[in-house]
Simulated assay, not measured.
Amino acid sequence: MAEIVAWAKQWPTAEVMRIDLSWQDEKEGRWGGNNKERRDRFYEQFGIAFAPGTPGHSITAKSKSKPMRAGELVTEEAEQAWRSNIRESSTVDAIAEQQREITMLAQECQRLEREAMRLREACQSTARRPVRQVLSRMAASPYAWGMVVVGAVALSLSKVVG
C-alpha cells in the first residue's frame, strides 16, 4: 500500500476515489475480534479517514465524502509501521532459512516417531505380560513396598490376636 500511495503521489492533484469497506471485514472472530480497529488503523496511517456506513448494509464504512487528492495521502507513518513490522531479506536468505526450518522440523518428527515407537512397544509389552508389568511397577514403587510392610504387620498381628 505504501508503494501504491507513493506512486499515486506523482500526480498530487489527482482525485482519490471513494473507498467502501465491506461488512465482511467486521465479522466477529476475525483477527482476534478486533478486525475493524486493525482495518481502520491500516487506512488511517495513509491519511484516509472513514465515515460510518449504515448498520446492517453490505458497506459499513466509506472514506470521507470530501474529495481527497493524492497529494494529501501520507506515507511516512505507514513507512515507519512497515519498517517496525516487516523484515526484509534476500530470496537466497529466505530459502536458506526455510531449509533450516525444514531440517529442524524433520529432526523433531524423527524424534517424535522414535518416542511413539517406544511407547507402542511398551504398550505391547504390557499387553503380553500384564502380571509381570504390575509386579515390576510395584517393585519399583516405594508406596507399594510400604503397603507390603503394612500388610505383613497386619497379617502377623492377626495371627497373634486370632
Rank of each mutant, 00 (worst) to 15 (best):
L119V: 02
T54V: 13
V131E: 13
E101A: 14
W11C: 06
C123I: 10
M104D: 07
G47L: 04
A2M: 06
M117W: 10
N35H: 09
R118S: 05
A140W: 06
L119H: 01
L157I: 07
S84K: 09
A116H: 05
S158I: 00
I48A: 02
A70R: 02
V16M: 03
R30Q: 02
N34D: 09
A116L: 12
V5H: 03
A78L: 01
S22R: 03
W7C: 09
V150K: 13
M68L: 10
E28F: 06
L21E: 02
W145T: 07
Q45D: 04
S58E: 10
D25F: 15
E101M: 14
K159Y: 08
R100Y: 01
S22P: 00
L119T: 00
Q98R: 14
H57S: 15
A140M: 06
R120A: 14
G29Q: 02
R128F: 09
V134I: 15
E79M: 10
D20S: 13
R69S: 06
V161L: 14
K36H: 11
G71I: 00
A94H: 09
E37H: 06
S156F: 08
E97H: 09
E88S: 09
R137Y: 05
W7H: 09
R120M: 11
Q10C: 02
N35L: 02
V131K: 03
V148D: 07
E97I: 09
W23M: 12
L119Q: 05
G47W: 06
A6L: 04
V134C: 06
R132P: 03
A14D: 05
R128D: 14
M104C: 07
Y143W: 15
M117G: 04
P12F: 01
E15R: 02
P130F: 01
S89G: 11
R132T: 14
Q99F: 03
P55H: 03
V153K: 10
W7G: 04
A116C: 10
C123P: 00
W145G: 13
E37V: 08
S90P: 05
R114V: 02
A78G: 13
P67E: 04
P130R: 00
G32R: 03
W31A: 14
A49I: 10
